[in-house]
């Protein structure tokens, strides 16, 4: 009977193990908040220094793709939350389907993001490689786009990790849903939602400024 050795010896019970794992994920998320925090401080500092350039640069981003990606991520988060709810032996196929939906949406996000990147390349908006902007605002705009590319690339990296994670979880769930996998799915879902939250703020910082002028 594998259930006897289902949890490592430092734990008292499998529930103890699962709660510990979730706590670990929360600590990891706190770390991640500060990882993006450094970038966000830089963003605010330069937005304060170059308000006009930031507004102008922001207008050059593609709000349609940005908003679509936000909707996509919010929906994928919704699907993942549903998948956590649907995790049980009876409904495991629904759970897998929901996860697959989230994976597809996640990949769509990345694809749209790369389309956006290539558009920006064509518009000469990549600092250091090929940057061409209204001469008067070029400094602030470069700083904006450095922030933009670093932040969104880092976020996209998180997305890819998340997609891989969801794929593994979907496979495990499909094969044999156990309480161990429920905990794993739970932690994976926390991570996915966190990546979603990061994007909510990036969206507000990158796409929205300067639209009204």
């Amino acid at each position: 009977m594998p259930e006897a050795k289902a949890f490592a010896s430092q734990f008292v019970s499998s529930q103890h193990r699962d709660e510990t794992a979730e706590l670990g994920m929360w600590v990891f998320i706190a770390t991640e908040v500060l990882l993006f925090g450094g970038l966000i401080l830089g963003y605010f500092v330069y937005r304060h220094a170059y308000p006009a350039a930031f507004a102008a640069a922001s207008r050059h981003t593609d709000i349609v793709i940005g908003a679509a990606n936000t909707a996509i991520l919010l929906t994928s988060s919704f699907l993942v939350a549903c998948a956590v709810d649907a995790f049980s032996a009876e409904t495991r196929k629904i759970c897998v389907a929901l996860l697959s939906g989230a994976i597809v949406l996640g990949l769509t996000f990345v694809v749209l993001k790369s389309i956006e990147y290539s558009d920006e390349y064509r518009e000469h908006l990549i600092p250091g490689i090929d940057f061409n902007f209204d001469a008067a605002l070029t400094n602030g705009a470069q700083l904006f786009f450095v922030f933009y590319f670093v932040a969104t690339a880092l976020h996209a990296l998180h997305m890819l990790v998340g997609v891989a994670l969801l794929a593994v979880l979907a496979t495990l769930t499909y094969r044999l849903p156990s309480s161990r996998h429920r905990a794993a799915l739970h932690s994976g879902a926390l991570y996915w939602h966190f990546v979603d939250v990061v994007w909510i703020f990036l969206f507000a910082l990158i796409y929205l400024p300067g639209r009204s002028s």
């Binding site: 709000i63 919010l74 988060s77 919704f78 993942v80 939350a81 879902a189 939602h193 979603d196 939250v197 909510i200 703020f201 969206f203 507000a204 796409y207 929205l208 400024p209 639209r211 009204s212 002028s213």
Partner: peptide, 28 residues
């Protein structure tokens, strides 16, 4: 974002962002 509110555009954008984040955190 398209309604000119001057400096309040930024405030509104971030406030709504916080609200969305709070919903995700609380529910999802």
């Amino acid at each position: 974002a398209y309604v000119p509110l001057h400096m309040f555009n930024a405030v509104v954008a971030l406030a709504i962002g916080c609200l969305k984040a709070a919903i995700v955190a609380a529910v999802f």
